[in-house]
Amino acid sequence: MNEGFDPEEIAELKKECEQEGQNYVIVEDEDGMNDSGEFAHFQFVGKHEGKEVIYDAVMGTLRLNHSSLVFEEAETRMKKAYPNYVEIDKRKPNHKIDEDLELMLEEIIEELEEEEVIKVKEFVEVEPDFEYGIGLDVSLNVEEITHEVITKFINEFNAGTLKLDPTLYSFTSEEE
Protein backbone atom coordinates (compact mmCIF):
# COMPACT_ATOMS: atom_id res chain seq x y z
CA MET A 1 0.00 0.00 0.00
CA ASN A 2 1.16 3.53 -0.82
CA GLU A 3 1.51 5.30 2.54
CA GLY A 4 1.21 8.71 0.88
CA PHE A 5 -2.54 8.05 0.54
CA ASP A 6 -2.91 7.00 4.21
CA PRO A 7 -5.08 9.52 6.16
CA GLU A 8 -2.84 9.12 9.24
CA GLU A 9 0.30 9.97 7.23
CA ILE A 10 -1.53 12.93 5.67
CA ALA A 11 -2.64 14.18 9.11
CA GLU A 12 0.93 13.83 10.37
CA LEU A 13 2.31 15.87 7.45
CA LYS A 14 -0.37 18.55 7.97
CA LYS A 15 0.68 18.77 11.62
CA GLU A 16 4.36 19.12 10.67
CA CYS A 17 3.48 21.86 8.15
CA GLU A 18 1.51 23.68 10.83
CA GLN A 19 4.44 23.47 13.26
CA GLU A 20 6.77 24.86 10.57
CA GLY A 21 4.24 27.58 9.71
CA GLN A 22 4.27 26.75 6.01
CA ASN A 23 2.40 24.62 3.47
CA TYR A 24 5.22 22.09 2.98
CA VAL A 25 8.10 20.34 4.72
CA ILE A 26 11.60 20.03 3.29
CA VAL A 27 12.87 16.47 2.85
CA GLU A 28 16.53 16.32 3.82
CA ASP A 29 18.35 14.52 1.03
CA GLU A 30 21.55 12.61 1.68
CA ASP A 31 23.37 14.22 -1.24
CA GLY A 32 23.01 17.80 0.04
CA MET A 33 21.43 18.99 -3.22
CA ASN A 34 18.98 21.16 -1.22
CA ASP A 35 21.90 23.36 -0.18
CA SER A 36 22.65 24.63 -3.70
CA GLY A 37 19.65 26.98 -3.81
CA GLU A 38 18.86 25.58 -7.26
CA PHE A 39 17.02 22.53 -6.00
CA ALA A 40 14.57 21.50 -3.28
CA HIS A 41 12.90 18.25 -2.21
CA PHE A 42 9.68 18.77 -0.29
CA GLN A 43 6.33 17.23 0.55
CA PHE A 44 2.92 18.82 0.78
CA VAL A 45 -0.73 17.81 1.02
CA GLY A 46 -2.88 18.26 -2.05
CA LYS A 47 -5.83 16.61 -3.75
CA HIS A 48 -5.81 13.89 -6.37
CA GLU A 49 -9.08 12.64 -7.86
CA GLY A 50 -10.96 14.41 -5.06
CA LYS A 51 -9.00 12.76 -2.24
CA GLU A 52 -6.22 14.20 -0.10
CA VAL A 53 -2.79 12.85 -0.88
CA ILE A 54 0.84 13.61 -0.09
CA TYR A 55 2.83 15.00 -2.99
CA ASP A 56 6.54 14.23 -2.90
CA ALA A 57 8.12 16.93 -5.07
CA VAL A 58 11.56 17.71 -6.37
CA MET A 59 11.90 21.20 -7.79
CA GLY A 60 14.82 22.62 -9.66
CA THR A 61 15.63 25.76 -11.57
CA LEU A 62 15.46 25.72 -15.36
CA ARG A 63 19.17 26.58 -15.38
CA LEU A 64 19.93 23.42 -13.35
CA ASN A 65 17.73 21.34 -15.67
CA HIS A 66 19.48 22.84 -18.70
CA SER A 67 22.99 22.25 -17.37
CA SER A 68 22.26 18.60 -16.54
CA LEU A 69 20.83 18.00 -20.04
CA VAL A 70 23.84 19.74 -21.64
CA PHE A 71 26.17 17.64 -19.51
CA GLU A 72 24.36 14.39 -20.46
CA GLU A 73 24.56 15.29 -24.15
CA ALA A 74 28.26 16.18 -23.82
CA GLU A 75 28.99 12.83 -22.15
CA THR A 76 27.04 11.00 -24.87
CA ARG A 77 29.13 12.74 -27.55
CA MET A 78 32.35 11.99 -25.63
CA LYS A 79 31.42 8.30 -25.42
CA LYS A 80 30.87 8.20 -29.21
CA ALA A 81 34.13 9.99 -30.02
CA TYR A 82 36.23 8.34 -27.28
CA PRO A 83 34.93 4.85 -26.46
CA ASN A 84 37.35 4.61 -23.52
CA TYR A 85 35.80 7.71 -21.87
CA VAL A 86 34.11 6.78 -18.56
CA GLU A 87 31.04 8.82 -17.58
CA ILE A 88 31.42 10.61 -14.25
CA ASP A 89 28.62 8.66 -12.51
CA LYS A 90 30.16 5.35 -13.62
CA ARG A 91 33.67 6.06 -12.37
CA LYS A 92 35.24 3.96 -9.65
CA PRO A 93 36.76 5.79 -6.64
CA ASN A 94 40.27 5.07 -7.95
CA HIS A 95 39.48 6.34 -11.50
CA LYS A 96 42.48 8.07 -13.04
CA ILE A 97 41.37 11.34 -14.62
CA ASP A 98 42.55 11.95 -18.17
CA GLU A 99 43.12 15.74 -18.38
CA ASP A 100 42.85 15.76 -22.20
CA LEU A 101 39.48 14.05 -22.15
CA GLU A 102 38.22 16.39 -19.41
CA LEU A 103 39.23 19.40 -21.55
CA MET A 104 37.43 17.87 -24.54
CA LEU A 105 34.31 17.44 -22.41
CA GLU A 106 34.47 21.11 -21.34
CA GLU A 107 34.85 22.19 -24.97
CA ILE A 108 31.82 20.13 -26.01
CA ILE A 109 29.78 21.68 -23.17
CA GLU A 110 30.79 25.20 -24.27
CA GLU A 111 29.94 24.38 -27.88
CA LEU A 112 26.52 22.97 -26.95
CA GLU A 113 25.79 26.11 -24.92
CA GLU A 114 27.02 28.53 -27.60
CA GLU A 115 25.00 26.82 -30.33
CA GLU A 116 21.97 26.57 -27.99
CA VAL A 117 21.57 22.92 -28.95
CA ILE A 118 19.62 22.17 -25.76
CA LYS A 119 16.52 24.21 -24.93
CA VAL A 120 14.33 23.75 -21.87
CA LYS A 121 10.97 25.04 -20.67
CA GLU A 122 9.10 24.95 -17.39
CA PHE A 123 7.42 21.64 -16.61
CA VAL A 124 5.61 19.63 -13.96
CA GLU A 125 5.75 15.86 -14.38
CA VAL A 126 3.29 13.92 -12.25
CA GLU A 127 4.23 10.36 -11.25
CA PRO A 128 1.08 8.69 -9.88
CA ASP A 129 2.85 5.31 -9.46
CA PHE A 130 5.27 6.62 -6.87
CA GLU A 131 6.53 4.73 -3.80
CA TYR A 132 5.20 7.43 -1.45
CA GLY A 133 2.17 9.49 -2.39
CA ILE A 134 2.38 11.07 -5.82
CA GLY A 135 5.71 12.17 -7.21
CA LEU A 136 6.21 15.55 -8.82
CA ASP A 137 9.21 16.60 -10.85
CA VAL A 138 9.15 20.39 -11.30
CA SER A 139 11.40 22.79 -13.17
CA LEU A 140 10.74 26.54 -12.98
CA ASN A 141 12.43 29.52 -14.57
CA VAL A 142 13.60 31.17 -11.34
CA GLU A 143 17.07 32.19 -10.15
CA GLU A 144 16.70 30.26 -6.92
CA ILE A 145 14.32 27.82 -5.27
CA THR A 146 13.20 29.81 -2.22
CA HIS A 147 10.50 29.46 0.42
CA GLU A 148 8.39 31.98 -1.57
CA VAL A 149 8.81 30.06 -4.83
CA ILE A 150 7.77 26.75 -3.19
CA THR A 151 4.82 28.32 -1.33
CA LYS A 152 3.52 30.05 -4.48
CA PHE A 153 3.93 26.86 -6.52
CA ILE A 154 1.96 24.76 -3.98
CA ASN A 155 -0.82 27.37 -3.67
CA GLU A 156 -1.22 27.59 -7.45
CA PHE A 157 -0.83 23.83 -7.97
CA ASN A 158 -3.50 23.07 -5.35
CA ALA A 159 -5.82 25.80 -6.66
CA GLY A 160 -5.44 24.53 -10.23
CA THR A 161 -4.17 27.98 -11.33
CA LEU A 162 -0.55 27.05 -12.06
CA LYS A 163 0.57 28.52 -15.38
CA LEU A 164 3.85 27.27 -16.83
CA ASP A 165 5.95 29.40 -19.17
CA PRO A 166 6.02 27.60 -22.57
CA THR A 167 9.06 29.61 -23.76
CA LEU A 168 12.14 27.57 -24.62
CA TYR A 169 15.30 28.78 -22.88
CA SER A 170 18.99 28.10 -23.26
CA PHE A 171 21.66 29.01 -20.71
CA THR A 172 25.42 29.32 -20.58
CA SER A 173 27.35 28.29 -17.51
CA GLU A 174 28.78 31.12 -15.52
CA GLU A 175 32.54 31.12 -15.69
CA GLU A 176 34.10 30.42 -12.32
Rank of each mutant, 00 (worst) to 15 (best):
49 E>M: 05
71 F>V: 04
172 T>A: 11
6 D>R: 00
110 E>Q: 15
3 E>N: 09
33 M>H: 13
86 V>Y: 01
171 F>I: 08
159 A>P: 10
141 N>I: 01
174 E>I: 14
17 C>W: 04
38 E>M: 13
90 K>S: 13
38 E>A: 07
145 I>K: 12
122 E>I: 03
160 G>D: 03
166 P>D: 07
3 E>S: 07
175 E>W: 13
50 G>I: 07
30 E>V: 08
63 R>Y: 13
49 E>D: 13
17 C>S: 10
108 I>D: 00
67 S>I: 09
95 H>K: 05
5 F>S: 02
11 A>T: 01
15 K>L: 07
108 I>H: 00
115 E>A: 14
1 M>Y: 10
67 S>T: 14
27 V>I: 15
86 V>T: 10
172 T>E: 07
165 D>A: 09
14 K>D: 14
132 Y>W: 12
83 P>S: 02
60 G>I: 09
97 I>K: 14
44 F>C: 13
13 L>A: 03
107 E>I: 01
31 D>F: 11
37 G>S: 10
135 G>T: 10
31 D>E: 12
115 E>K: 15
143 E>F: 06
48 H>T: 00
145 I>W: 02
66 H>W: 12
159 A>M: 10
168 L>T: 01
175 E>M: 11
87 E>C: 05
60 G>E: 14
128 P>W: 13
44 F>D: 09
67 S>V: 09
40 A>P: 12
29 D>V: 15
54 I>G: 08
78 M>D: 00
55 Y>R: 03
65 N>Q: 12
41 H>I: 06
68 S>Y: 08
84 N>T: 06
121 K>H: 14
159 A>Y: 10
66 H>E: 08
136 L>W: 10
123 F>Y: 15
98 D>V: 12
147 H>K: 13
89 D>W: 04
84 N>C: 01
102 E>I: 06
140 L>V: 02
21 G>I: 03
49 E>T: 05
110 E>C: 12
1 M>K: 08
167 T>P: 01
53 V>C: 10
53 V>R: 01
134 I>E: 00
51 K>M: 07
166 P>E: 05
96 K>C: 02
75 E>L: 03
63 R>H: 10
87 E>D: 07
17 C>V: 02
129 D>M: 14
62 L>C: 07
36 S>K: 13
97 I>S: 11
134 I>Q: 09
168 L>K: 09
167 T>C: 01
72 E>V: 11
154 I>C: 03
9 E>G: 00
143 E>S: 14
105 L>E: 02
167 T>I: 04
176 E>Y: 11
